[in-house]
Write a protein that binds this DNA or RNA. Structure first.
Lengths: 183, 183
DNA sequence: GAACTAACGCAAAATGTTTGCGTTAGAATT
DNA sequence: AATTCTAACGCAAACATTTTGCGTTAGTTC
């Protein structure tokens, strides 16, 4: 079923995708879709959330700075494109208590968790995952979904460097100078 | 027409609102609605964006800290409620080039502009509006739209105090000590 | 092995959406 | 002031989608 939706999304604009079409593509009747998902909105939200599930751990560049930049930039590139924005819209549009949007949040945190754990394993000082979500991912999401002047590649780097600079400053005031590299 | 939508939203769940219903409430025919807005999604997005237009300047508490807290808390209270979340969803769901979501961003920045200008008029040092959007409003939006553990009242205060603390720190390194109060 | 459950297909009914055509009200032009 | 033009609307028919009742089937439990 998810495959059917993806196939149609690849060849038609969003507003031209209907439940009967999906049903036909998937070889079932529309009533099956309606009974399982309720309506088109929920189905698309479910598919979009599933598509956002990471298929691999974030790339390991050797430094926290590199890992965060790579992750943020890849996410931005994916979600600021028309296709990605449509996924985000579909995910947010759902009013389901199953909360496809919540799954996105979970996926993001899981990836960041890996990056942070790796950095700590290398002895790097790191912000908490919640802080990264708040100060890097959230502004990017806002930029993608709301901002009139769209957010761009360098902004992602700036956000990452800002939070790293802050955690360094904080660190300097709580641990002896020189206990860890400047970045 | 907007009044008709609001009236229906006040007495029915979101999924029970249809174009023919709105048309009847507004005393027009459905075709009028379809021709003007295209579909229900766009109409709801338009109405939701309009409802977010501020009807008054932000309350003046006498300090930047107080103004920002008041604004952030009022916004959070409004948008984290089921009704407000529905507005946000409707706004984001639109794929219109007219970008109802962009209007929200504009409204927010306009209100923050007022708060910042007032603070500067009092001689307070302030973050830029863009920074406040990025570090206070964006995390709140993310919390409302995505987070599994919902964002709450104290978080808004924390976000405001964090950005003010940062701008104070920055200030200390670029202007003579004592040139402005600690907060 | 029989009863139960959940999910599905089918088809009809209900509801929502699109479109062509005629009308009207207001603005612009002469 | 009369005329033309335009944009928006109502109406109604054609069309598409959504909902629902009923019968069937596959898988599960007792």
């Amino acid at each position: 079923m998810h495959a059917a939706v993806c196939a149609l999304q690849a060849e038609r604009p969003r507003h031209a995708i209907t439940v009967p079409l999906i049903a036909q593509q998937a070889g079932v009747t529309p009533s099956t879709v309606y009974r399982r998902w309720g309506d088109l909105t929920e189905l698309l939200a479910d598919v979009a959330a599933e598509r956002m599930r990471p298929d691999a751990p974030p790339t390991d560049t050797g430094t926290l700075h590199g890992d965060l930049c790579a992750y943020a930039e890849q996410y931005l590139e994916e979600m600021s494109a028309p296709t990605g924005r449509a996924y985000l819209r579909d995910v947010v549009a759902s009013a389901d208590p199953g909360r496809p949007a919540g799954r996105c949040d979970t996926y993001i945190r899981a990836q960041l968790e890996i990056i942070v754990a790796r950095a700590q394993g290398r002895g790097e000082r790191t912000p908490r995952v919640g802080e990264i979500v708040e100060q890097v991912m959230a502004p990017m999401m806002y930029g993608i979904l709301f901002a009139v002047t769209p957010i761009a590649y360098p902004d992602a780097v700036r956000l990452v460097e800002a939070i790293l600079a802050r955690s360094t400053v904080l660190a300097r005031s709580t641990v002896p100078a020189g206990a860890h590299p400047a970045r």
